[in-house]
């Protein structure tokens, strides 16, 4: 591995100043489960590694009924699935954080890091998109907010500019009669990367027989995690039925732009999108009915 400097700033201002000064030469370290491997294998270069874990804001994990969930960028998976509020209010997020890597990875890996690594197959991004999460980005000009679906722009690339880093995620409080669900297809039971991932969220009417709104997002079928707005929109005001779910699944299948690689063929992935979208919607509906 090439030599690099290491800094562990204690404040947002200090981190921003380091990142601004060093530009592309600096890399942000959170859980390190992607970055350290990439540096070791020469897939990314860094002259400076900025460990953000000593900054209080990135370790925030708190909930308020009006602001919703504040999830610091450096909160590791195990803390998220070990948090009772998240378990109760955001089971769709729990689905994803409890299947990233194995226990060892979950002890370090963070949702913020999963997002910034910008893999098309990242498990936590589809559920964040369907939950309507927003990225709070710190930078030289203060903070700005970007919806999660707009954060990744290409494999491994995000909207982050020089001097910026992801501070936290904000997830709105769950609405009444709503539910979210994420699942993926992998050939093993554990420790694998999604062939396809699908997340869905739904808001149902008072009697829970009609969709008020829905969101669908897919992983590993496009250069970035894919928000399929039209699949969710098609469900609005439709009855909760197999037929409407199937229609949305078809729209998602048509929106997928998968490639063939070592994990699966494009055809297989398109097929999986249909199946997984349906199952994700069914899971979300079940949770909405239980809520």
């Amino acid at each position: 591995m090439y030599d690099f400097d290491y800094a562990s700033p204690r404040s947002v201002r200090e981190a921003v100043s380091l990142l601004e000064r060093r530009g592309d030469d600096a890399r942000v370290l959170s859980g390190g489960t992607d970055l350290i491997v990439q540096l070791r294998e020469g897939r990314r270069k860094a002259g400076l590694v900025v460990d953000i874990k000593e900054i209080p804001e990135v370790n925030d994990l708190s909930y308020g009924p009006r602001q919703g969930l504040r999830l610091g960028a450096a909160v590791p998976c195990y803390k998220i699935y070990g948090n009772e509020t998240v378990q109760k209010l955001y089971p769709g997020l729990i689905d994803a954080v409890s299947l990233v890597g194995g226990i060892q990875i979950q002890g370090r890996a963070t949702v913020g890091g999963n997002l910034c690594n910008a893999s098309p197959a990242a498990d936590t991004i589809p559920p964040l998109i369907v939950l309507g999460a927003a990225c709070v980005i710190a930078g030289p000009q203060g903070t700005r907010t970007v919806p999660v679906e707009d954060f990744c722009i290409a494999p491994g690339r995000t909207v982050l500019q020089r001097g910026e880093f992801l501070l936290s995620l904000r997830i709105p409080p769950p609405l009444k009669n709503s539910g979210a669900f994420y699942l993926r297809f992998i050939p093993r039971n554990e420790m694998d990367i999604a062939v396809v991932g699908a997340g869905a969220s739904v808001v149902l009417g008072k009697r829970r027989t009609v969709f008020v709104s829905a969101r669908v997002a897919l992983g590993a079928v496009a250069p970035t995690p894919l928000f399929v707005r039209e699949a969710g929109d098609a469900l609005a005001e439709k009855p909760v039925s197999d037929e409407s779910i199937q229609q949305a699944a078809e729209i998602a299948r048509a929106a997928a732009r998968p490639i063939s690689d070592m994990r699966g063929t494009a055809d297989h992935r398109r097929h999986l999108v249909g199946v997984l979208t349906r199952r994700a919607l069914e899971g979300a509906i079940r949770r909405a009915k239980e809520s």
Partner: peptide, 13 residues
């Protein structure tokens, strides 16, 4: 108290 892969932790951390 957390299980980790020590190959994915920097010594300085």
């Amino acid at each position: 108290g957390r299980l980790v892969n020590s190959c994915l932790v920097l010594g300085v951390e």
